[in-house]
Amino acid sequence: MLDYIFAHPNEILELTRQHLQITAVAVILSILIGVPLGILVARTRSLQPAILGTASLLYTIPSLALFAFLIPFLGLGDKSTILALILYSQLTIIRNTVVGIQGVSPGIIESATGMGMTRAQILTKVQLPLAVPLIMAGVRTVTVMDIGIATIAAFIGAGGLGVLIYNGIARLYPEMIVAGALPVAVLALLADFILHRVEDFLRPRGLKAVR
């Protein structure tokens, strides 16, 4: 079952690198777009239905169809793939940011206001630090999801480990499918594990579980 992997280590390393690159760029851009949108939604409730509604609509569209919609505009390749992954990730990141910020107890906000903090200070000094663990949980979910969906992107020429799966299916060559699927699964588990650690590390000290 693992023959193909041992026979072609360099090819697999290169495809893994491509896969990671696509995912990393997509996740970082998703955070840069999603977190500010989440903050906006948390503070301007009238925007909530429009933004969350759009994000959940995008999330509902099957991935293959979403890739297809972007091809006429961005062509085949990385760009369409990355944009599709970003669009996919928005719901999770925005929602976790909103819940994290709005989950800070009103008592804490009131006492911060009473101490003379401005709205901006309350956001940056109180709400965001307290929301970090939830936002990071969103980032973790999105990363694991993106690693999986990026396999599909191989068919629009974006490279990555999906190439082996597609070719394996086309040639009815199971070892080749495994050679693509196994590293993807390992990447996803590894990302989950590492981001869990990061989540713990970024948790404000007062909120860490007492050991």
């Binding site: 690693i147 999986g148 396999t151 799966i165 597609y166 299916i169 009815l172 495994v178 699927a181 993807v184």
Partner: peptide
């Protein structure tokens, strides 16, 4: 959840 859907489909073939 970490196994891509594409791979599950492919591995059903054999």
């Amino acid at each position: 959840q970490t196994i891509p859907s594409l791979a599950i489909l492919g591995l059903c073939i054999p």
